[in-house]
Design a protein around this nucleic acid. Sequence first.
DNA 1: TATGTAACTTGCAAAGTACAAGTGACTATG
DNA 2: CATAGTCACTTGTACTTTGCAAGTTACATA
Lengths: 120, 120
Amino acid sequence: MSFKRSCCPITNALDILGDKWTLLVIRDLVLGKRRYQEFLSSPENIASNILANRLKQLEASGLVTRHAYQHNPARYEYVLTKKGKGLRPVLDTLIVWGQKHFPGTVVFPRVNQRYGSVKP
Amino acid sequence: MSFKRSCCPITNALDILGDKWTLLVIRDLVLGKRRYQEFLSSPENIASNILANRLKQLEASGLVTRHAYQHNPARYEYVLTKKGKGLRPVLDTLIVWGQKHFPGTVVFPRVNQRYGSVKP
DNA sequence: TATGTAACTTGCAAAGTACAAGTGACTATG
DNA sequence: CATAGTCACTTGTACTTTGCAAGTTACATA
């Protein structure tokens, strides 16, 4: 999907977000997760290749930035950009709709992990 | 995707909405479209088999109801249920985000077609 | 030396998507 | 009356994406 399907803002948004995994990764980022293993540990059990692919796409789309928090071996953290953070209202309305129509669903708590300092 | 991936409301919503086409069909329904050819005529050029499949899924998920507007041959119209209409805030926030980050995108106008009367 | 961990990558089968063409039941036109 | 057109789909086939398991690289720890 590299060409432009239409000039509709919804269509353009879905070209980035329209699959079963991308918004879940963004949800995790909003919840405070930053590292590969943290995303993998979410209960939906995303496959590692799908996760790697989605993180790459999110970076390419400017929703996420990646920076090393350690060298030798290089380890990366992922953080939402302003554009990525702008999706919160979308997630919020989805949560409202989801909670109304799927009884028993609950919003996950924010993770508040201590991250090591980053040496540039 | 028939099992439950998790108890997250976003995940459950994405199990229905998480692809490149479903929310576009819902957008068309919100805009007032009801018939097969109308959905097909949208600028994104959805394939007819994908459209048929999505309409079936939407009906199965309770977002849309189908009723005949003509017999011999039977022709059907699709209308959003209350649950389906509840997605408007999601579309609205997507539009806001899309318009902000994809310059030049424009919201499509509502169609206001005269539909024939339905004989039950 | 052996095991473990983090962040990926690779291989392959299964599922989903895109495009074209076909179907059945009519309606309209020459 | 025969032909063409419309509507709402369905079918067939090729291509792409996804899901699962296993492998890789570069360390850290026992």
